[in-house]
Design a protein around this nucleic acid. Structure first.
Lengths: 232, 232
DNA sequence: CAGCGATAAATTTGATCATATTCTTGGTGG
DNA sequence: CCACCAAGAATATGATCAAATTTATCGCTG
C-alpha cells in the first residue's frame, strides 16, 4: 500500500493523514445509516447535509452517490433522497442472501483463522456481552457489526465481503428500529457457538451457528416490520 | 430503479430527455467496463475521461464514485483508478456467488413469468443466436447480458438483482478477454434448456439450466485467467 | 570520465469551492 | 380551477489549491 510517510517532513500528526473530505463525509453518513441514526423513510437533502456536517456540497454529493450505489440510500423522486423503507419482500431477499453468504464466509474463516484471529473475535464478543448487559443498544449494534466484519476479514474473500457489507447497509436502519422495540434482551447471540466451532475447526458447525444467528436476527426484523410496516 | 421520466413537461417527445449529465456519463462508463472496452488492469484518470467523453469533471467524478462503489472500478493508490485485475480467488468467489444467485432468480422468474415475458426472452435469445452465428462478439456480450438482465427483471427481487448486476460489472472485462481468445464458437448457451423449463413451469429444471450456463461460462474465464494471469 | 542515486523543480492530476443555470415546486392571482 | 411567477434546491462549470509523480540536474563514487 502507500507506506510512504517517511518521505515528508517529520510531522506525523498521529491519526490525521489528510483523509479526503468526501471520504470522511462518506464514513459519517454511512455510520448514520448503518446504526439507524437516520430512520427508514427519512428524507435527506444535499444542502441539509452540508449544514449538518459543515461541509461543502461537492464532497457531500460524491458521498451520496456512493451510498446510493451501495443501496444505503434511495434516489426516490427527481429531487428526494431517503433511507429505503423495506417491505416484507425485501426482508425476504436479505434473509435469503445472508443465509447463504454468512455461512460460506464462516466456513472460510474457520479454515483460515489463526489463534490471534480467534482471540480478536472473542474480545469483540466479550465487549458485545457487556453492551447487552448494560442495555447499550448503540454499542450492541456497532459491536455486532464489528464482529461480523471481523469474521468477513478472516475469510479473505474481498468480493463476497463487499456484497455482505452492502447487505448490512440495507438492513441496518430497520435493525435499529427493531431493537428500539424489542430492547437488548432476547437479542440473538449465537456467537459463543460460533467461536467454539471455530476453535474446534468444525467448519459445518460454524456455518450452522452463524446461520442460526443471522436467521434469528433477520426474522425478528421481518416480524417487526410486518407487524407495523409504517412508522415515523 | 431508473424511473426518472419527465413527469409533466409539455415537450417530452423523447427527443431531449434532459437526462442529467452524471447519469449519462455513468451509463457510458458502465458500458465501457461491462463490455470490455476498458481492459482489466487499465488505468483511467478523471481528467482523461473528461477529455474522452467531453464532459465537465464534476459529473465524471460522480460517475466514477458510483462505479467504484459498485466494484466496477478500483481505487488503487491515492491517485490511480483502474479496472480490477481478477485473480483465481476472485473468479472463485464470482462463480460461487452466481451459482447461488442466478438459479434462485431463475426459480422466481419461472414462477412469475407471463407469456409476454417468455416471448421477450425468446426474442432476445434468437438475436443472441444470430450474433453467435455472425461471429459478432460485442453483440453476443450485450445480448447475453440483456438476456440475464431480463430474467432478473422477471424475478422481481430488486435487492438480489442489484447484487447480480454488481457481479456482472466485476467479471465483464475478463469475459471480454476470454471471448477474444476463444472466439464465439464454444460459447455457453443453455438458454434453450432454460426457456423450455420455464415454459413447462419446471422451476428446478430452470434453475439447473441457468446454473450450468453460468458455471460453464465462468469456468472458461477461470481457466483462461489461470493460463495467462497477466496480459497487457 | 561515466554511471548511479538522490533531491528538487515542474507538470500532471485530484480535491474543493464559489457561482451560475436549470428544474421542480408551491403559492397566488385571475 | 388553471396558469403564471417566485423561491429554493440540485446540477454543472471553471478556477484555484494541494499533492504526487515524473523528470532533470547535480554530486558522488567506482
Amino acid at each position: 500500500m502507500t507506506s510512504r510517510t517517511a518521505r515528508k517532513t517529520g510531522s506525523e500528526t498521529a491519526l490525521a493523514p489528510r483523509l479526503p473530505a468526501h471520504e470522511t463525509i462518506y464514513r459519517e453518513l454511512r455510520a448514520l445509516v448503518l446504526f439507524g441514526d437516520l430512520a427508514p423513510g427519512q428524507a435527506v437533502t444535499i444542502q441539509g447535509l452540508c449544514d449538518r456536517l459543515g461541509a461543502g456540497m461537492t464532497p457531500v454529493r460524491e458521498a451520496l452517490r456512493r451510498l446510493i450505489a451501495e443501496g444505503a440510500l434511495e434516489f426516490q423522486g427527481n429531487r428526494r433522497v431517503s433511507v429505503p423503507l423495506l417491505d416484507a419482500g425485501n426482508i425476504g431477499e436479505l434473509i435469503f442472501a445472508r443465509q447463504w453468504l454468512d455461512p460460506h464466509l464462516a466456513r472460510r474463516a474457520t479454515e483460515r483463522a489463526t489463534p490471534a484471529d480467534l482471540d480478536h473475535l472473542t474480545e469483540v464478543d466479550d465487549d458485545l456481552d457487556r453492551a447487552i448487559l448494560r442495555g447499550d443498544m448503540r454499542a450492541y449494534l456497532e459491536l455486532n457489526h464489528r464482529f461480523h466484519r471481523a469474521l468477513y476479514e478472516i475469510a479473505a474473500a474481498p468480493i463476497l465481503t463487499d456484497v455482505a457489507d452492502g447487505l448490512w447497509l440495507r438492513f441496518g436502519p430497520s435493525l435499529r428500529v427493531v431493537c428500539g422495540r424489542v430492547g437488548t434482551e432476547g437479542l440473538p447471540d449465537r456467537h459463543k457457538d460460533l467461536l467454539a466451532a471455530m476453535r474446534a475447526g468444525d467448519t459445518e458447525a460454524a456455518a450452522e451457528a452463524i446461520r442460526a444467528d443471522v436467521v434469528q436476527g433477520m426474522e425478528q426484523v421481518r416480524q417487526s416490520l410486518s407487524r407495523q410496516p409504517r412508522d415515523d
